[in-house]
Amino acid sequence: MRKPVPQRSPRFLLLPLLLPALLPLLAHAADGSDIMQKGGANPAAMPCITCHGTDGKGMAAAGFPRLAGLPEAYIAKQLADFKAGHRENAVMQPIAQSLTPEEVAAVAKAYAELPKVNIKPTPVERPQPGSGAWIALRGAWERNIPECTLCHGPAGVGVGDAFPPLAGQSALYIENQLKAWRGTKAVAATRKTKAVAAVPPSRRNDPNGLMAHIAVDLSDAEIKAVADYFAGLGESKEAFDESQHRLR
């Protein structure tokens, strides 16, 4: 495969002139791992690794998510949603907008091919009511909140293309996403404080509203607890054993 033109090389300056002629070529040249490391053809599409980590496992402390092993279709969908504004984020939106459709396809494929998160199939501990594990494994059905693992898979390893893994993501990232789906309610003024306007949800991209109502109905404490639970599962070095049942 032909390597794409490296950024900032002298030839790069000729690009605008050659662009019409090169376009068909470039479309084929989009190389996923190159985009990760050097960014897209448009310099605004910064190298992914600066934030998502050289191994694609994200940066927990900064709330940059893991991309390694996420489903290809899910990554492509998120980039499309950032572009279309269904998912608002000051950092990721300009990056997504600067990627060509070919680059999106290539980088989604490349990240999907990196190792998936791995959780040992050890018997799950019995969760205690009121804990993060309880929300994750039992839900809160009195509020129509199914256990997270019912959609995100046993131990939160993800299911198919539409249900991303929660295991492998940091507590901060999970918390941010739940709050993005929820937005914040308006707070009325009191004698001592000013009114605070409601902030509408900044993530509005869940299919059929499957996720939003869950985020809305969880308390802050529950969000923190369940985020800590999934972040705390860590990662196992043993390969995922497909032949073993994962218990609920």
Binding site: P154, V157, H245
Partner: peptide, 19 residues
């Protein structure tokens, strides 16, 4: 369909049925 599949086959993770 998103969960139960185009052919009603459901979805699994390894051998474990999820949907």
């Amino acid at each position: 369909q998103l969960c139960h599949g185009e052919n009603g086959e459901g979805k699994k993770v390894g051998v474990t049925s999820v949907f």
